[in-house]
Computed example of a mutant assay.
Amino acid sequence: MNASRMKSPAIIATIVGAGLTLLSWSQTWFDLRLADGAGAGTPADAIPVAGSIASPALAALSLAGLALVAALALAGPGLRMVLGVLEVLLGASIVFAASTSIGDPVAAVSPAVTDATGVSGAGPTAELLASVTASAWPAAAIAGGALVVLAGVVVLATGTKWPASSRRYRGVRLAETDDHAEPAPRAASDRAIDDWDELSRGDDPTG
């Protein structure tokens, strides 16, 4: 595909990846069961642990990814390279945060154990756990982060060749000039201002 046509796919991939991460963050990541005698129901009672508890940083990371979308849509070629680097780092941070929770689920659910039992500390809360079962949402967050990384790579590879933003986003719209065209008539208010300036300098504008 032509590099100049990669703007929309890169922006859409950023939206999908960041949006998937934010959605994952709001869902249940783990179901934990406490050991018998832990003081919060029976071992058969599963306690859901949301992504907001298991990996709280994902909310800020995903929102930052969504904020990049507007910047990428309006930025010039040079700034796109900077944003591309930021996007790769942002996606990598999402993958790292979600992977850390999957790699150490006991630590990820520790705050939920503390809420249920009043016991704090990684060691004491680990002793109260009977089991921890992961859902598919942590993997979905990793997929979202990977998609953001891929979009950032596309920005770095093709961003300098993207078409410029639409004219409707520009502050000033310049009309084409014609060397043989007569100058446009000046407004009366502009002439009055010039006359006042001449009077201030001591010149007579009627002379």
Rank of each mutant, 00 (worst) to 15 (best):
A112S: 10
W196S: 09
N2Q: 09
T133H: 11
S4M: 09
D194V: 15
E127W: 08
A188H: 12
T28W: 03
A92Y: 06
R167N: 10
V149D: 03
V82N: 01
D204K: 03
G65T: 06
L23M: 06
G19I: 07
A126L: 04
P138V: 00
L63Q: 04
D204R: 15
G152W: 02
F30E: 06
S101K: 10
T21L: 14
W162D: 10
R191C: 03
A98R: 07
T206F: 09
A67E: 04
D195S: 12
D104Q: 04
I102P: 01
L156A: 08
A46Q: 05
S93K: 11
R80D: 05
A60Y: 14
A98P: 13
G39L: 09
V85A: 08
A139E: 08
D178I: 09
R5P: 00
P105I: 15
D195L: 02
S62M: 04
W137L: 14
D194Q: 14
I12T: 11
S165Q: 09
D190M: 11
L72E: 07
L63F: 15
V153N: 14
R33F: 07
L32Y: 02
L90M: 14
S62G: 11
S8L: 15
L156P: 12
W25S: 07
G152A: 01
A122D: 15
T158C: 15
A38H: 10
A3I: 08
A116T: 04
E176V: 08
L174F: 15
S26C: 04
A188N: 06
I12G: 00
S110P: 04
E176C: 08
D203C: 01
T177H: 11
M1R: 15
V49R: 00
L63W: 13
I142K: 04
A10Y: 03
L174M: 09
T177L: 11
T14S: 13
I15V: 11
A98T: 10
V149Y: 12
D45R: 05
A187T: 13
A175P: 12
G17D: 07
L128W: 01
A10V: 07
L68S: 14
A151P: 01
A140I: 13
S200P: 00
V113R: 08
A130M: 10
A60W: 15
L23K: 10
G171V: 14
G37N: 03
A18R: 04
S101M: 04
E182R: 10
S24T: 05
V119D: 07
A139N: 13
G39F: 09
V16S: 05
P43W: 04
V119G: 02
G39N: 06
S62A: 15
W25I: 02
E87N: 11
D36V: 07
A112N: 12
L129E: 04
S55Q: 07
A192E: 10
M81I: 08
